[in-house]
Nucleic acid binder design. Sequence first.
DNA 1: GTTTAAACGAGACGGTACGTCTCGTCTTCCC
DNA 2: GGGAAGACGAGACGTACCGTCTCGTTTAAAC
Lengths: 193, 193, 193, 193
Amino acid sequence: MATTPNPDRRNERARRAILDAALELCSTQTYAGLTMEGIAKSAGVGKQTIYRWWPSKAAILLEAITERADQSLDFPDTGDLLADLRGQMYELVRLFTDPMFGAYGRGLIVAAQTDPAISAALLDTLIRPRVQLCIERLAKAQQAGEIRADVDLAVVVELLYAPLYYRMLLHTAPVSSEQVDSVISLVMSGIRP
Amino acid sequence: MATTPNPDRRNERARRAILDAALELCSTQTYAGLTMEGIAKSAGVGKQTIYRWWPSKAAILLEAITERADQSLDFPDTGDLLADLRGQMYELVRLFTDPMFGAYGRGLIVAAQTDPAISAALLDTLIRPRVQLCIERLAKAQQAGEIRADVDLAVVVELLYAPLYYRMLLHTAPVSSEQVDSVISLVMSGIRP
Amino acid sequence: MATTPNPDRRNERARRAILDAALELCSTQTYAGLTMEGIAKSAGVGKQTIYRWWPSKAAILLEAITERADQSLDFPDTGDLLADLRGQMYELVRLFTDPMFGAYGRGLIVAAQTDPAISAALLDTLIRPRVQLCIERLAKAQQAGEIRADVDLAVVVELLYAPLYYRMLLHTAPVSSEQVDSVISLVMSGIRP
Amino acid sequence: MATTPNPDRRNERARRAILDAALELCSTQTYAGLTMEGIAKSAGVGKQTIYRWWPSKAAILLEAITERADQSLDFPDTGDLLADLRGQMYELVRLFTDPMFGAYGRGLIVAAQTDPAISAALLDTLIRPRVQLCIERLAKAQQAGEIRADVDLAVVVELLYAPLYYRMLLHTAPVSSEQVDSVISLVMSGIRP
DNA sequence: GTTTAAACGAGACGGTACGTCTCGTCTTCCC
DNA sequence: GGGAAGACGAGACGTACCGTCTCGTTTAAAC
């Protein structure tokens, strides 16, 4: 890429300070109230240093979050499909109801509406890998005959997860484990042989 | 309310010009690029006149949109549930793929993440009435025995519509009538007696 | 004049309230802080009523002041020129050092720098009549042989009064009766036969 | 001082543009019509850059003017007191009748009525140094026996110059060299031995 | 071990938009 | 039709950030 200078000479301390400051500030204020100027000041860093390495505040947040999220990338397979789904979806409920998430999670999705680069990064690093893992778990179940062979698993994943995003973003109702149970129950009815 | 001055003395011409300018500008630029200053100038109106009656640009857009949307509030009942659902959902697909919607539709949802007033208005005037109509149509079908009696229809509505919002907001895949067909098919399998 | 509507139908009560409010406010705030809006509110009068009858706040003040000043227009002639001059000039010192005058007096002179109408009115109603009276008193003294015949009395008046205005407007030193005495003394030395 | 940021990093080009634009605009419009916004636009400068270095438009004007005025600070001593006085006062007449001066000179005096800082600066940088020079010239004449020993020279300076300010600010009559001659003539009569 | 080039902190710069304020005009309703 | 009330178009106010652009000052690789 031509946008960034020599990454070898990069100062890791500055990078850390910026990412930390971004998350730190996000927990205090709203995403809209997060400014490059604020990050620079609170990180003890020149603005130019930020602009040198990131194109936007969303990009900073994204990097900060993926860094923290990359750890737990796995979808359990206990043999009990319902329990596995429920466990993963409960996890998402926990995330969506975390007040901290309200700041940067929503902020990232908001930024993705405008900035295709953020949108792509969000998909590639956070969403799709997890969707893929879920599909794979469903595929095993399908091969085991727990799901009809003609069912499009990509659609199933959407049916399972979309209602959580729907409530989270539109505020029609609080995201909850009850919702997860209802959704799983109905979807399973539709895909069982 | 204390926020607004005497509404009797309000100048309707200014109100119209502001709402029209807001929509007009939205079709040109992005939602973020829509400014109070721009609306004022393009409407030939003082900024104070805008701030007098609306607290934010999102509020303006919301009023402009609801005004145009209020007309067609009905959910057909042809007796054919699948066809009725498909028709309504195709309509939403058409809306979500309208380039104009990209500007203000997404903008409103974005604004709703931050501003509870916008969120509430969005729900009350646009989302919930339509959800309600859909539930009522499903209730008729349920009474006709086309849907199992134990099915929670509110969850069904979410299962049907959430995947469209999911794709629209996360850009995981293009919203399309094919998606609608898949979703309806799977959901119907799950709720049929 | 074409600027004003039919003066016969004018409401005297409103006129009084406006003039009084203008002076009243001037004693509180600075001239720059005196606004049409403030006068209207404090007079319990519509802004239009002010604009109907006066072109500017300076015009209001001017009318208010001349009204009060018109009473005492006379220059005493006790036979003692020095005493007469001193008396009149002490009076001006008293005016210039009145804190109230700081508000409207300076304000009017300031306004006169910009607005020729104010300047003309200021001269015609306040300055020139008094200058004329002073010249007449001096003329009597000249005829009595107390002042050389070749002296231009208009210049003498300026020599007497200008130093007071000079200090008042430039703040080089406080206006005072000592200054008056010095000035009179020197000027008299110059014009005595 | 705490008001201004690091002056070392200051952009001289911006400073020049702002000072020039201020004078330029003053000669076009009235002082009251001079706005920070106008200066910024016409100087091709951000408003913040102005506010960073000057607290008010008067401060800008003052700096602009003193810069231009500092050059010629001397009072000639040809041995001929009358000629020297006349020369200096003619110079002031020339200044007061310069149409350009009407804009910013009056503007400064107007500003000094409201803003003590401007008043002080005006006195310290423009008025008093010149008054002092005049007093010194008069003192020499006094020691040479051309002026009575008991005459307060400070009062003489006021007698000489005040009438020019008087006419300039009150518009009672045009400032002119004839006025200067009359004034000098009368004052000299009063102070000669 | 010095040179040297780039990344760094700091922050001034030209801008845009903000939300508030006041101006002088226009409109509405009351007496 | 004059007057009280106040909404209106206009635009300046001073502030907050934007993203770019110098400035010295580290600082780490190349000599």
